[in-house]
């Protein structure tokens, strides 16, 4: 196995464990966070806070590194423009997120919990992604 593949697998396992431990594979908990005007459950804010805190340190370290530990170079987004596409797409994503209480990460992690439900969500998500590609390819 290539080193990068091994890192990705390890990161995926830790990521999935974090999602499950934080309750993010439970749609009711995610929808509880999004129920700001009802019985609000702030758990997701703690999950996001913990992750952002660790990653803030990682970014501080990254700025002092010339290259990653196990690959040749960093491949990171460098755009800063705010486009209607970014905002419209994010707005749509939030609607889908609120409907089922699932986003892509927990969708895949939930394959270990409710494989049929997770597979339906994932298949529909991939189809949506494909639709964007086809429509944009034709435009």
């Amino acid at each position: 196995m290539r080193r990068e593949t091994f890192i990705a697998l390890t990161a995926g396992i830790i990521f999935g464990a974090g999602l499950a431990l934080g309750g993010m594979t439970d749609p009711a908990r995610v929808r509880g966070f999004l129920d700001l005007f009802g019985a609000w459950d702030p758990t997701l804010a703690f999950v996001m806070g913990g992750a952002v805190l660790v990653m803030a340190f990682a970014w501080a370290l990254q700025r002092r590194m010339l290259r990653p530990f196990f690959t040749d170079s960093f491949a990171l987004p460098d755009r800063s423009d705010l486009t209607p596409r970014l905002i419209g797409g994010s707005a749509l994503f939030g609607i889908g997120w609120g409907i089922a209480g699932l986003c892509p990460g927990p969708g895949f992690a939930a394959l270990a919990i409710e494989p049929v439900s997770a597979a339906i969500f994932i298949a529909a998500m991939l189809f949506g992604m494909l639709v964007v590609r086809i429509v944009e390819g034709a435009a």
């Binding site: 797409g89 707005a91 994503f93 969500f121 991939l126 949506g128 992604m129 964007v132």
Partner: peptide, 15 residues
Amino acid sequence: LGIAGLIVGIGTRLG
């Protein structure tokens, strides 16, 4: 789940 997944797929690609 299908409707939500579809919207999430379109939204995350655009966004």
